[in-house]
Design a protein around this nucleic acid. Sequence first.
DNA 1: CGCGTTTGACCAGGC
DNA 2: AGCCTGGTCAAACGC
Length: 329
Amino acid sequence: MDTARRSPVCLDLMVGLPMVCEPSSARCTGMRAQADIASSACGRATSMTSSEANKIMEAKFTEVTEENRRLTEMIGYLYANSQNFARQSPEGEGEQPASTAASPTSPVGKKRSRESMDTSDSGDVNSDKKMGTAEAEHIDVESPLSNGTCRRIKVKRVCTRIDPSDTSVVKDGYQWRKYGQKVTRDNPSPRAYFRCAFAPSCPVKKKVQRSAEDSSVVEATYEGEHNHPRPTRAGELPSCATQGGGSVPCSISINSSGPTITLDLTKNGGGVQVVEAGEAQPDLKKVCREVASPEFRAALVEQMARELTGDRKFTDALAAAILRKLPDY
DNA sequence: CGCGTTTGACCAGGC
DNA sequence: AGCCTGGTCAAACGC
């Protein structure tokens, strides 16, 4: 499996984090199994014959092998999920829980409900801003259907400050085709209407209009969800995976439990991946910079070593592993 | 010639 | 019923 191959596994040290170990967690059971091996090896070595010990060790080994197999699958699955999320999550913008309030500037559902308004497909409205700073709000708008039910349409409103001389539309990584322009009553600037041009069946629409108060601010409203992956662009890199000229194997993804910082040290010859989950949403760019610094990595390695050497279970498991490698006297 | 943009006309909902 | 407005269509146009 590709995801498993690309996932340099991995020793989850949970550095400095009170992560909860579920009893069913393969990650934890794997470590516990190793500890069991250690205790078995150390505790029984003096009271049983070497053949009995070998049988027990073989049974344990089989058990741990199975655990490791499940662990590998789980990590591959988690890795794939994190990659998907990182690809879909725009940079500098966290997923916000969508409210159910209707957008004051997006009267979706007011007009006729056409076939093209069917936006209940999978996907999302994630579209990043490639210039300036953007404020985004996610809104779920209920669009009434002819049969009396309501369809929930994701509406994302983004405000971006641009160079006034820049007449280009908001760049967000998707391909758009303009299909209309209208001067609205409350804004002298014309409103442009765009459809997603990447996939003919993609229902996403986008409205772009300069702010009435500040012409340097462009307000883009996205309606619907893309039913296709984001088009890749040359030079575009997911998250900060290669920040620092590609020498720093760092990636950051965000999930429901908060940001996850993955530092892959395998490229420097190590074999350790640290997964850290925080509760608060940090400044990702700042975190990337910090993670990329040699000081951070040195401190991280030092802390990992401290954690490892201070973990009795780990040292026991290590001792058991060494015992297994020793010739049977 | 093909594709994307422009722009006036048209449609539908709200008042 | 008629007007206003936002949204969409499609022919014309430009590159």
